[in-house]
Design a protein around this nucleic acid. Structure first.
Length: 768
RNA sequence: GCCCGAGUGGCGGAACGGUAUACGCACAACACUUAAAAUGUUGCGAGGUUUCCUCAUGUGGGUUCGACUCCCACCUCGGGCACCA
């Protein structure tokens, strides 16, 4: 027998699959469609990571099974290739990002093909391709046209190391998500997208999709809807009011003071009446210098200053109350002002105690709208869409002194990213594109006068917002995708990706899909949600449970694993190592188990001589077909493989008695996991066609039933005996049997039986 | 502080309220071999008076004939949010 040689076998079958295009998704096929999607990677210089493989292998298994079940499967792949690393590399080496991107994507593709993934490579897309980002820009124009994109000067999160503005979602605990550096505040003109307008729908429509509950909860909490009321407080002696937002308008009789964010605009307006202006001004300056994180540091030690000489009137009891500014009030939530009810709110209570303010208990309750108007507030902010970097989609806008911001006409798209010599972002926060005078200076599309292009580029989420739509029609030059093709393929039936994208990509792309729906760019019949079902894989940790990272030198490269053990082994190992949605450490030793299993299959299939056909294994085979099929649907890959292992162990014990049909069933259910091995054995044993093109086997329900069962005998809930009896015996029959066995008879002795609990074919419990 | 999730052998982990520890790794003994590797066979939670019994699924209670599983309280770890009014 020829020794198992995965390198040779895998190369052979990859050649056959990819040359004969068997994974091609057919537009408008009569078969039922199935759209499986994994998050497309950023093609870094380091190559594919074993963490990527976990997600891709899982949906590859599902896709392969669905094809065998007769579905027309779309399982596409592409490249989310705009981003900082390529730009940083360009800065370091002076090489065009487009060149490194090309090199990296070629490497990634080769690596993916080495793993035998059944992607339809005819539909490969790349977000940096002008033919692709033309439509990313087009979506921006539409957002602008509908008033959902606007430019505003605002304090943004600025990373001093990456020299880039960040969206709120990209700031983790006050630090840059990428480099971990403390984020600063910087005033800049920024493009913003009104995702807040969709906040309600982004919450509500979660009810209609199949996502893990924790993903739904996280998204809802991120959007942070709270219902309350806005109440106006009149300033004494001024013709001015302060609006506060509260979720507890019923507690207004307990309000004994107001607190404003130090940035509140009313302060400037009543400045002249503030008796302690110097003190107030100093506090405002001090607050400005603090980052959001520093502001949060002293949660238990509240600071603030009273605006002396200015008082407000509580509209409920008409009493005069003092006004404070304090940095525990945030300007960008609610109205930037609160009514403090120290009897009911812990923070207000703390503040009141520190400043000796009255705390009124036992106050009268008010109705929800007695003194104000019902409103809704969200924590979600509008999405900062400008980045001061080179390697991104140019924002297709032109600034004209006369006409203000003018969109580039659709017919002039794409606005191509020009080649530059210097990629460095600048300390002033201006994009490297700003120095490209030839590119920047254009005629105003509106009046023909002197105008300049926007030099900021889009964030790297822009391209991934809608990529799943492009796969349905990747080469269309007239539209982002043909309506009929969208109609056929969408929605995505199953989308797997990382938990880290819950409040980023997943939320953004849901929003953009709703927007495209609203403007009619996707067919109305598709509904509001792009992804029917979302699942998440657990990340792969390094040996010993630490994070895999370059600096620790514990990153596992799939190429090395494939070289040493083979792609089928890697696939099986990654699915076997633990529950799919759970974080799991890589274990170099564990791979050996997967390899032994593969070799065992190889040996047992080729050693059978099939001369003494027997079928003692039929029951077990049918049970395994059922178990593996069900487990794949539930992403319980680890137990699916475990049951395959058990079956193969049985095959091994009875290898002289195996039939060709036995082997056939095994190969079919094994093929999604270890497709190369399955194809090779399929051919060697002499079955026709490609194993990947076969029908998924049906299990025989009558064959799943055992004739004999092992029945557990308990006394007082403790296992005392096990008896093998014919299946489907009733309680009386079983009682007769077990009460006669010497062991049980002995244990019961003369004690009287209180009760007998009987579970058919499983258990009998005698209660004494 | 709030919201999720998880605690089971030496390790990764299995287990519709019904045989706890499947499957795999590691380990040990044996077989094959001049030898090693590979492979195969057997054993492998702890303890005991060892055909059998007792105790073990983070801790303490509860429900139940029966609890890793359900309920209550607590401890530890991981993730998310966080002065959000």
């Amino acid at each position: 027998m020829v020794k198992y040689n995965p390198q040779k076998i895998e190369k052979k079958w990859q050649g056959k699959w990819y040359n004969s295009n068997i994974f091609k998704a057919q537009d408008f096929s009569k078969k039922k469609k199935f759209y499986a999607l994994v998050e497309f990677p950023y093609p870094s210089g380091d190559g594919l990571h074993v963490g990527h493989c976990r997600s891709y292998t899982a949906l590859d298994i599902i896709s392969r099974k669905k094809r065998m079940e007769g579905f027309n499967v779309l399982y596409p792949m592409g490249w989310d290739a705009f981003g900082l690393p390529a730009e940083n590399y360009a800065i370091k080496m002076g090489i065009q990002p487009s060149i490194t991107t090309k090199k990296n994507t070629a490497n990634y593709k080769k690596q993916m093909q080495r793993l035998g993934y059944s992607f339809d490579w005819n539909r490969e897309i790349n977000t940096t391709d002008p033919k692709y980002y033309q439509w990313t820009q087009w979506i921006f124009l539409k957002l602008f046209e509908k008033g959902l994109a606007y430019k505003e000067k605002m304090a943004i999160n600025w990373c001093p190391k990456d020299k880039i503005g960040l969206a709120n979602e990209e700031v983790i605990a006050g630090k840059c998500e990428r480099c971990g550096i403390q984020v600063q505040k910087k005033e800049k003109e920024q493009w913003l997208i009104k995702i807040t307008k969709y906040a309600d729908r982004l919450i509500k429509d979660l009810d209609s999709v199949d996502y893990p509950e924790r993903v739904k909860i996280q998204q809802k909490e991120w959007i942070g809807k709270s219902e309350g009321a806005e109440i106006e407080f009149i300033l004494n002696n001024f013709k001015k009011t302060i609006k506060v937002f509260t979720t507890r308008p019923d507690t207004i009789f307990g309000c004994t003071f107001l607190v404003l964010a130090p940035e509140h605009s009313i302060i400037e307006k009543v400045k002249n009446s503030i008796l302690n202006w110097q003190e107030v001004e100093q506090y405002i300056i001090k607050t400005k210098d603090k980052s959001d994180l520093q502001r949060q540091e002293n949660q238990n030690d509240k600071t603030g200053v009273e605006l002396k000489g200015v008082k407000a009137v509580n509209p409920a009891d008409k009493k005069e109350i003092p006004i404070f500014i304090a940095d525990y009030i945030m300007i960008n939530y609610g109205t930037g002002a609160i009514m403090a009810v120290p009897a009911d709110d812990k923070r207000d209570e703390e503040f009141a105690k520190k400043f000796n303010l009255p705390i009124v208990r036992d106050y009268q309750r008010a109705g929800f709208e007695d003194f104000g108007k019902k409103t809704v507030q969200y924590k979600l902010r509008d999405w900062i869409f400008s980045r001061q970097h080179y390697w991104g989609e140019p924002i297709p806008m032109v600034f004209c002194q006369v006409c203000n911001w003018v969109p580039v006409p659709e017919k002039d798209l794409p606005v191509q990213l020009p080649k530059v010599k210097k990629y460095q972002p600048t300390d002033t926060g201006e994009s490297p594109l700003a120095v490209m005078e030839k590119w920047v200076n254009v005629k105003c599309p509106n009046c023909g006068g002197v105008a300049q292009r926007e030099t900021d580029t889009m964030p790297n989420w822009a391209g991934s917002n809608w990529y799943f739509l492009r796969y349905t029609d990747p080469k269309n030059s007239k539209k982002l995708s043909d309506e009929k093709k969208l109609q056929y393929w969408m929605p995505v039936d199953w989308y797997n990706g990382g938990m880290e994208h819950t409040t980023l990509h997943l939320l953004y792309s849901r929003f953009i899909f709703k927007f495209l729906y609203d403007i009619g760019a996707v067919p109305k019949s598709l509904g509001f949600e792009p992804y029917k079902k979302r699942t998440s894989h657990g990340i792969v940790l390094g040996q010993g449970g630490v994070k895999m990272s370059k600096s620790l030198g514990n990153v596992v490269n799939p190429d090395n694993v494939i070289k040493q053990y083979g792609a089928d082994t890697l696939r099986v190992y990654e699915m076997f190592m633990g529950p799919f949605e759970q974080m799991i450490p890589w274990d170099e030793k564990g791979i050996i188990g997967a390899r032994r299993f593969i070799e065992k299959v190889y040996t047992v299939c080729l050693k059978g001589d099939f001369s003494k056909p027997n079928s003692t294994l039929d029951i077990q085979i049918n049970k395994t077909i059922k178990k593996v099929g069900e487990d794949i649907e539930l992403m319980k890959f680890n137990t699916a493989i475990s049951s395959l292992m058990i079956l193969v162990n049985s095959f091994f014990e009875e290898k002289e008695l195996l039939t060709k049909e036995n082997i056939k069933s095994l190969l079919l259910i094994l093929s999604p996991f270890a497709p190369h091995l399955a194809e090779e054995l399929w051919e060697r044993i002499g079955f026709k066609g490609l194993c990947s093109n076969q029908k998924w086997p049906q299990y025989n329900t009558t064959l799943i039933k055992e004739e004999k069962v092992l029945l557990i005998v308990q006394i007082n809930g403790k296992v005392r005996d096990k008896v093998e009896i014919m299946a489907d015996k009733n309680q009386k029959e079983v009682e007769e049997i077990i009460l006669q066995t010497p062991k049980i008879k002995n244990l019961i002795g003369s004690i009287s039986i209180k009760k007998i609990i009987f579970v058919p074919n499983k258990l009998i419990n005698v209660v004494l």
